[in-house]
Simulated assay, not measured.
Amino acid sequence: MVVFANREEAGKLLGEHLKTQGLEVDLVLGIPRGGVVVAKEVSKVLHVSMSLLIVRKLGVPSNPELAFGAIDPEGRIYTDRWTIEYFRLSQEEIKRVAEEELKKIREREEKFLKGKELDVRDKSVLVVDDGIATGQTVIAGVEYLKRKGTKRVLVAVPVCPLESMRKLKEHADEVYCLHTSESGSFAVGMFYRDFRQVEDSEVEELLKDGVL
């Protein structure tokens, strides 16, 4: 099994891989918070500006780490029907979680982007995260960017399950994953020796060159 030392190493390796593919993009977008660390390294290798794509996972109330869907900055919800049915989530529960997460999106937009509108029209954009589990959050981000008028939306991650990669390819123009896993049990943290939580202050430090 491939194991990365930390998100920085994963980002450098991912960036080098993308470079060998001859990838050309106008902008790299990291998904906060862990994805921003990886995206920063990718943007350095590719010599491309970086900003943030602030989308949020919608977690099952009894198990918040488990996603039943995701929400984008416009408040559009993307859900996994099977998970909702399995946990018998009501429309009220879904609405409550979505409202909480949209509030967090607004807070992060203000904190990290200083209220700046993300300008992606007619650009080739690369979305980067530290890994993908279900893919719900990244799909929400990809669809949001397409509605914002991007020319092309590409996705790159250090690790993801094969099934999620297949699902993502139905939404993104191209998907790059350094290590695809066919294992039944999958968690992004399994593939990192250091997978500690990234703090807001670290994200702000990574963005100190300014965001577009």
Rank of each mutant, 00 (worst) to 15 (best):
G189R: 12
L66R: 11
D72W: 07
D130I: 08
G131T: 08
G115F: 01
Y78R: 09
V28C: 07
V159N: 07
A140E: 10
G75P: 03
I54C: 10
I84L: 14
V120C: 01
R96L: 12
I54R: 10
A10Q: 11
F4K: 12
A156L: 10
K123G: 04
H17Y: 15
F68M: 13
F4E: 15
R121G: 00
G210Y: 07
P64R: 14
E163A: 07
R76W: 00
G34H: 10
R147Q: 11
V175S: 04
A70S: 11
E110T: 00
G184I: 14
L13Y: 02
G189W: 02
S164C: 11
L58G: 06
R88H: 14
D122Q: 08
G115W: 01
E202T: 14
K208F: 01
K151W: 09
L118D: 02
H179N: 10
H47R: 15
T150N: 02
G75H: 11
I31R: 03
G184P: 08
L207N: 11
Y176I: 05
D200H: 13
L207T: 06
E110S: 13
P64W: 03
V28R: 05
P61I: 05
S183P: 00
G30H: 08
V175E: 04
K40N: 13
A140G: 09
R81P: 10
H171W: 07
L18H: 07
R96M: 05
D122N: 15
R88N: 15
T20M: 14
E109S: 06
S49K: 15
R106E: 15
I132S: 04
I94F: 02
E65M: 06
L102N: 04
R33C: 08
V138M: 15
H171L: 03
G131S: 05
E16M: 13
L13S: 13
H179R: 13
G210I: 09
H171R: 15
L18R: 12
D80S: 12
R147N: 12
R108S: 05
M165N: 03
L53C: 10
D130V: 12
L162H: 08
